[in-house]
Design a protein around this nucleic acid. Structure first.
Length: 281
DNA sequence: AGTGTATCCTGCAGGC
DNA sequence: TGCCTGCAGGATACAC
């Protein structure tokens, strides 16, 4: 579910509230979202203080004061919710309790951080700073990093005959793009999703990087896309859904030329495109 | 180096 | 109403 804009939204919210809190309780409800036994996870985190909250690709990186970090990947349906202390203890007005709670952190000063995940494809992993550096190095560059040029992108695409949509979804090639924004970026760039990555020339690389950056930036401003499950750290829905131009719009008119948007499936996932704006070679 | 398939898991929409 | 199938923002492991 959550791609870069959704994760960035959650990270920005948590960065304002979490730092300075200390973990004083860890309640593991569904152990299968951890990569280690619940007891060792709990034992390692109890007493840790939160220094900062950042993002790498689709990962939420919570840096702890003991040179460790907690890395959260939301999978398809994960939610990381910050629950501030209730004004009146016991009273929970409109806010419904999140369903499918998998883990609860009790924090000091009084607050809690909830992890809920319907399908439990998400995971929470602990790393030392050095371990995380190594993990992070496996991921491709950040698309919004201004140091990344379209020429860098072209060189990374050059060895790959993989369809560009699949290439964009590969987190080791470029970090943070998922299925929604892959379709959207390719639509904006006018590139067919099945074009081999290595077939994109300099001009197309530039349009693609532009398309990726524009759609991710626009989606961040709207606080992400909620199709169904995604919620921000405050439990709100993202507002980018109505701005989607291709994804999920099979049969609807292309916003540029009115041709019907088509859906094709490859590598087991849907891709949406305009057959007239995004020509197949 | 690719692709297709399966896996983890739950919920929902649509067809009958 | 109930049952079935297919589909879903991700990541990974497998055989070919």
């Amino acid at each position: 579910m959550p791609e870069l804009p959704e994760v960035e939204t959650v990270v920005r919210q948590l960065a304002e509230t979490l730092p300075g809190h200390r973990i004083r309780g860890v309640d593991v409800i569904h152990a299968d979202i951890l990569k280690e036994p619940p007891d060792s996870f709990r034992g390692a985190l109890l007493g840790s203080s939160i220094d900062s909250v950042g993002r790498r690709g689709k990962n939420i990186v919570i840096t702890l004061s003991d040179s460790h970090c907690l890395v959260v990947n939301l999978g398809m349906t994960g939610k990381l919710l910050f629950a501030p202390p209730l004004p009146v203890p016991g009273a929970r007005p409109d806010e419904e309790e999140p369903s499918h709670l998998a883990l609860i952190f009790a924090l000091e000063p009084q607050a809690s951080l909830l992890y809920a995940d319907t399908r439990r494809f998400g995971c929470l992993r602990r790393f030392t700073s050095a371990e995380w550096q190594r993990e992070s190095a496996r991921l491709g560059p950040e698309p919004l990093d201004q140091g990344l040029t379209s020429e860098d992108l072209r060189q990374r695409m050059a060895p790959s005959r993989s369809p560009i949509r699949s290439w964009l979804l590969d987190q080791t090639k470029i970090a943070g793009v998922g299925n929604i924004y892959a379709s959207e970026a390719l639509f904006r760039a006018g590139i067919h999703p099945k074009r081999p990555a290595q077939s994109l020339g300099p001009r197309e690389s530039a349009s693609l990087l532009g398309g990726v950056r524009d759609v991710l930036s626009d989606a961040i401003l709207a606080r992400g896309t909620t199709l169904r499950d995604y919620r921000t750290a405050t439990g709100d829905r993202g507002g980018f859904g109505p701005s989607l131009q291709a994804y999920g719009r099979e049969g609807a008119p292309c916003p540029r030329c009115s041709t019907h948007i088509e859906r094709i499936v490859f590598a087991n996932r849907s891709a949406f495109f305009c057959p007239s704006c995004q020509l197949n070679p």
